[in-house]
Design a protein around this nucleic acid. Structure first.
Length: 156
DNA sequence: GCCAACGTTGGC
DNA sequence: GCCAACGTTGGC
């Protein structure tokens, strides 16, 4: 079992939006970076743990725990000329970008990026490296356990 | 809104 | 295949 951190802009899709979605599941579309795509296509498995991260917002941080709920399939928005994620070089015969389904598992308190930076056990996280801007990044088991413990602090 | 860092594009 | 120019990301 592997662990991942996936970034979403909460104005577009927040963790609460996923909790409210049918089956608590959404399609993760719009990834347009090859490294992030390759993680999703080649390394993710159904059941992998996902830290749901809110980016490009007033207070970035981890909003909850989710899981990978499907294998990879073509991202429909790449074929849609009216979508901001449209890719004119992608065809249905040769799709370039993929999606996976993500299911919300558990909320928690909001763990801010600033707090994550203060936790020594998280110092090696890909997310926290200088210049890192991958929208999908791997998380080690140790990092995962530390973050899950922090998310559960003060929760009933 | 700024800007550092990174990724992509395209001329050569 | 190099690399300058440009575009994007994302925290602050």
């Amino acid at each position: 079992m592997a662990y991942w951190l996936m970034k979403s802009e909460p104005d577009e899709t927040s963790f609460d939006d996923v909790l409210a979605a049918p089956g608590r599941t959404v399609s993760w579309f719009g990834v347009r970076n090859y490294q992030a795509r390759n993680f999703m296509r080649d390394a993710m498995s159904v059941g992998d743990g996902v830290l749901f991260y809110h980016s490009s917002c007033a207070v970035p941080g981890v909003a909850g725990i989710a899981e990978v709920a499907s294998g990879p399939y073509p991202d429909a928005t790449q074929f849609d000329p009216s979508s901001p994620y449209h890719d004119p070089k992608a065809t249905s015969a040769h799709p370039r970008w993929i999606s996976v389904d993500v299911r919300a598992v558990e909320g928690g308190r909001y763990l801010t990026l600033a707090e994550m930076r203060s936790v020594p056990a998280l110092g090696d996280m890909v997310l926290l490296q200088k210049g890192s801007r991958l929208s999908v990044s791997p998380v080690t088991a140790g990092q995962w356990n530390a973050i899950v413990a922090l998310l559960r602090e003060g929760q009933r």
